[in-house]
């Protein structure tokens, strides 16, 4: 230890003299350079690997089909004679209503599941009740994250089939909303229920680090359990709400399975954007990849925007 420090901090004293020192320095720099070059080369290769599918999709979306697609390299930008915006217009026309539908259930489901997840996490971390009874409640909530949804699909269909939701929502139909929108209400509630576990876990990891003394101080200050949440815990969890909302929004927006089961057809007026996208370009003559790519980018746009603006929060949500 002392030798190493000596070499670094006091080079003039070293036995090799100035010539030896210069040689060594040069060697070090050369070694460093080679290493750094290899490092950055690897990192750039990885970057190319991660970006190629996206880049290739993006340039393809601007090409004519089939001439432009078959006569250019898939990752090359479209030459002027094959350039077109038509695919974007077609995709937008097909997906526009899906975008609105997706937002109609993704936004409320995100907010509700985050809020309920925060409630559950608070009631299970800062509340003082017996661990013997608390642990099973907690375990059941945590395990809910890992359930393959296939295991609940058939009962879910049965349940929503049996619920008189359509009759309950009659006022909406009277107002001219298509009855198919019942599916969106079902989707909202379903996503809230299956989103609570992950939201609870994210909030719980945050609440466990909240100072216990601070909560005790608030209780001594006369605040009830509910008031402590309202005035202390909720305000200080804004950073975590950002993380959870962003993560949960991308999850709900991106999910296909529940949309497929509960709304079922892409021709339904209530079809979410992922459902329409999954069938896009297939029904036309052959596979129209340019249209598919344009559609993919339009469907991904909201989550891409959220990701690019709040990448840090997304990474945090993912890592916890």
């Amino acid at each position: 230890m002392s030798d190493a420090r000596h070499d670094e901090s006091d080079p003039t004293d070293s036995a090799g003299g100035t010539d030896g020192l210069a040689d060594r320095l040069r060697d070090d720099l050369a070694g460093l350079d080679g290493y750094r070059v290899a490092l950055y080369a690897t990192i750039l290769t990885m970057t190319v690997f991660f970006l190629t599918p996206i880049e290739s999709g993006l340039v393809t979306a601007f090409k004519t089909n089939p001439e432009g697609i078959s006569s250019t390299l898939p990752f090359a930008p479209p030459p002027p004679q094959f350039f077109t915006l038509e695919k974007w217009q077609t995709a937008m026309a097909a997906l526009g209503r899906g975008m609105v539908n997706s937002a109609l259930y993704a936004v409320p489901a995100t907010i509700l599941s985050a809020l309920l997840g925060s409630f559950a996490a608070y009631g299970l971390t800062q509340a003082d009740w017996r661990a013997r009874y608390k642990a099973p409640v907690l375990t059941m909530l945590v395990a809910g994250i890992f359930i393959p949804y296939q295991a609940v699909l058939v009962p879910l269909s049965q349940f929503w089939g049996a619920m008189p939701l359509q009759e309950l929502l009659t006022p909406l139909w009277v107002l001219g909303v298509p009855e198919a929108y019942t599916g969106l209400v079902e989707l909202t509630i379903t996503h809230v229920a299956y989103g609570i576990p992950i939201c609870m876990v994210l909030f719980r990891s945050y609440y466990r680090n909240v100072s216990e003394e601070m909560i005790e101080a608030a209780r001594l200050d006369g605040a009830t359990f509910r008031r402590v949440y309202r005035r202390i815990v909720f305000p200080i969890s804004t950073p975590m709400f950002a993380v959870v909302l962003i993560y949960q929004f991308t999850q709900i927006w991106n999910d296909l399975l529940f949309a497929l089961i509960l709304v079922s057809t892409e021709s339904s007026p209530a079809a979410p954007v992922v459902l329409i996208l999954a069938g896009l370009g297939e029904s036309m003559e052959g596979q129209d990849f340019a249209l598919r790519m344009a559609g993919a980018f339009i469907a991904a746009l909201p989550t891409l925007i959220v990701y690019i603006m709040f990448g840090e929060e997304f990474a945090e949500g993912v890592a916890t």
């Binding site: 409630f119 299970l124 509340a127 059941m140 509910r226």
Partner: peptide, 24 residues
Amino acid sequence: FGDDFTESAPFWLPPFLLVGLFVY
């Protein structure tokens, strides 16, 4: 069940019931 059991129930019980119903 512990001191805060009833006071905290409004927080964890509704989400727990929802998950209990839809998952288990």
